[in-house]
Amino acid sequence: MASILTVDDSASMRQMVSFTLNGAGYDVVEATNGKEALEVAQTRHFDLVITDMNMPLMDGISLISELRKLSEFRFTPILMLTTESGADKKQAGKAAGATGWIVKPFDPERLLGTVNKVLG
């Protein structure tokens, strides 16, 4: 079973993402900000990371560049959840090493479609 780390400071978004991916048979771990996510990432493996951008303590961009420094996460797909469809945010994310993005608002079907696509 593929394992996914979802990072979001919003409890309802976390709940929605977890519920959707759990239902599709993925093993989902939640973190509420970049700092927490990084701590979890240092202890175990994930096949995919889905992270929000705006978070307290450590934002998505910093999380992505920190994750890319860990040998375990050099090639792991990392998706950004972003409402800012503006190019600069995506660029910054890409520059930090993000694989791609999911534009908010999204529905469970689209989320699952993208995740299935990435994880094959």
Binding site: D9, S10, S12, M13, M16, N54, M55, P56, T83, K104, P105, F106, D107
Partner: peptide, 24 residues
């Protein structure tokens, strides 16, 4: 300012996702 922005941002994102378009 960041914390205010984040709160507004989350409300917008959530309300859009959960279909409360007036709010978002």
């Amino acid at each position: 300012i960041n914390s205010i922005f984040r709160a507004a941002h989350s409300i917008k994102g959530g309300s859009g996702t959960f279909g409360f378009n007036e709010v978002s």
